[in-house]
Design a binder for these strands. Structure first.
Lengths: 346, 346
DNA sequence: GCTCGGTTGGTGAGCGCTAACATCGGGCTC
DNA sequence: GAGCCCGATGTTAGCGCTCACCAACCGAGC
């Protein structure tokens, strides 16, 4: 190791390049390139020599140089909103793993706001950086709008929401999830179901609201006015207090688990038993949901699958150089725990 | 010009390059380069012409080519473990924002396992990709070990834990956090404090355990045997059940909020009042903590600050080309909520 | 008139790699 | 054994950019 450092300082200041390896192995740099890229036209014996030379010199291929000449950087960009939240974070994780498997690198651009210009700016930055394709985790209406005006000369896939006319979209079937949650409550015997919705400009929130509404309409029951929150436990708490004051409320479908936690807390403070007096269903199935008080019935979204499915679609688009049909929607699953039961006897 | 376009029959299939811009503006490609890099030796009038030409042609600088010649990619790598967890996800978010501000891109490599070879492999992949420096979010002992043998020819910073002899480390003062949590409980009048620790191979877990132990020792009180979990709510629940059966337990310091949630749940099921009979303190202050039943007293870690501080350190190292002194530890803060109170009267 | 120094611009050489073609031996057909 | 093809390797030309120089050009000073 000592001699190693010395060489680093004095003798060979630069790292070895293909020509160095070739010289050492007694071949041309091109043969080295062939070995690296697994060309079949190299004699096994030569290949061995080259590999030995690479090892001896500690050769490391320069992917920047390769990217310049091939026009492919093997890098994909991901534009996302607040990667601190469980959903985006998990999706990103799934994307990353799938990218690794496919031999791609992921460069992220997390946004604080998901407005139109932020999204366009992020897409532009990533393009300049030379990514081969872009994944936009864009659940908001404004982002969708930005994507409508996205440049057409780079493969782009929207995750969870987007303008299907403009870009392929991969998403979870939110409506189906909302239907199963609402149906579950109705099936238990509740007269109707209240709804704590997500922000109106989130497509997921819109589709969950829609699913809820459709189910109530199909059952021919009264539709209470939905309450709108911002996904946070705090909002759930504030809205939950409102609901707790209304004795008619026996079942609530909350648009995500964090808000559901807030609702649970508010009900508890108001002295309303869950599920005895009020049943609550969430959405997402975050890892903590089974340990809420009481354990939360919720709709599980497979974010990992969502991420890897969208990544694979993007990789396919990069490979064939043109738009591909969108992947089928990922199906959510109702997980019944202890926060729901039959309505209290009147 | 026309003959030139023959190849480009279908209306310029290739994107414009510097030479194209130069031709259009009536200058050489070098002058275009000067404009882009803000050289002072360009007449304002010329600059205008070049900028206009760039806009007209929709010119986009090719950063791959630039990276090849400068040897700088303006990209930093982040190796992290399970970016689904709140801590790593928030840290990554802080890193990303700081990188954006500093003009860098972030490429992530999330690992499923944080063993030695995974870490080394990820570092190697990032190097090959041409990153200018690497950030390792490495709270585990094995990762630290890997870093001891990390290559010395690329700037590297360990976040939250690492071998200080080998690489600069930026971290939160875990010991101080554990001390303040334990002291808080002791100050309330509890005879002693139980501890639900994180996995033994996590440095954070070790330091929290140490802080707890030191505080008890300093107070001269009995040290109960710590229980060891895996950070999950499930583990907290299982361990919480054990604690709930021991009537002597009146105060518990749990190594993170998820496990604390499990403890809360287990106590609730066992009919033990919180905080009436048992006080519980967590660690992290996840956004949901204020809405637990009851709202959780916990130790807040400023992950955002942790991330940006480490990123800035790395950027400095890349800039000056040599190791820099580690940044000061980020101080955690005790947040008192409703899960702690004076011990029950005997 | 000349030199001189500063400003503004151009020229050529690479960064490390891959793609396309050229070359050079056999082993095969007939 | 002439002709041919094919497998293994070398040669050359860039990819788009920056860096180190060099060439005009300008007004100032003698």
């Amino acid at each position: 190791m000592d001699g190693d450092e010395e060489r680093a300082q004095t003798r060979r200041p630069r790292a070895a390049v293909m020509a160095d390896v070739g010289r050492r192995a007694g071949v041309s740099h091109q043969t080295v390139s062939r070995v690296i890229n697994g060309s079949p036209h190299v004699r096994p014996e030569t290949r061995e020599r080259v590999i030995a030379a690479m090892r001896e010199l500690g050769y490391r291929p320069n992917s920047v140089a390769r990217a310049l000449v091939t026009g492919r950087s093997n890098t994909l960009g991901v534009v996302s909103f607040d990667t601190t939240l469980y959903g985006p974070a998990s999706t990103l994780f799934g994307i990353e793993r799938a990218a690794h498997e496919a031999g791609y690198f992921i460069v992220v651009a997390s946004l604080k706001a998901l407005d139109r210009s932020s999204v366009m700016d992020a897409v532009e930055r990533l393009r300049r950086h030379g990514v081969d394709g872009i994944l936009v985790i864009a659940p908001q209406v404004d982002a969708v709008d930005a994507l409508l005006h996205a440049p057409g000369d780079i493969p782009l896939v929207a995750v969870e929401a987007g303008p299907p006319e403009a870009v392929p979209v991969v998403s979870v079937d939110q409506t189906a999830g909302a239907i199963s949650a609402t149906r579950h409550l109705l099936d238990l015997g509740h007269k109707t179901v209240w709804h704590v919705a997500g922000p109106a400009d989130f497509l997921e929130a819109q589709r969950r609201l829609e699913g809820w509404r459709m189910t109530l309409a199909a059952a021919g029951v009264e539709q209470p006015e939905p309450l709108v929150g911002d996904w946070s436990a705090r909002a759930g708490y504030d809205l939950g207090r409102r609901l707790s004051r209304d004795g008619a409320v026996t079942a609530v479908f909350v648009a995500n688990d964090q808000m559901a936690l807030g609702v649970l807390r508010a009900m508890h403070e108001a002295g309303r038993q869950i599920p005895g007096e009020v049943s609550v269903v969430g959405f997402d199935d975050i890892p903590e949901a089974p340990y809420f008080t009481p354990p939360l019935t919720t709709v599980r979204q497979d974010f990992d699958e969502l991420g890897s499915r969208s990544l694979r679609l993007l990789v396919r688009m990069v490979a064939v150089g043109q738009r591909q049909p969108a992947a089928p929607e990922v199906q959510p699953e109702l997980i019944v725990r202890a926060s729901t039961t039959v309505p209290p006897a009147r």
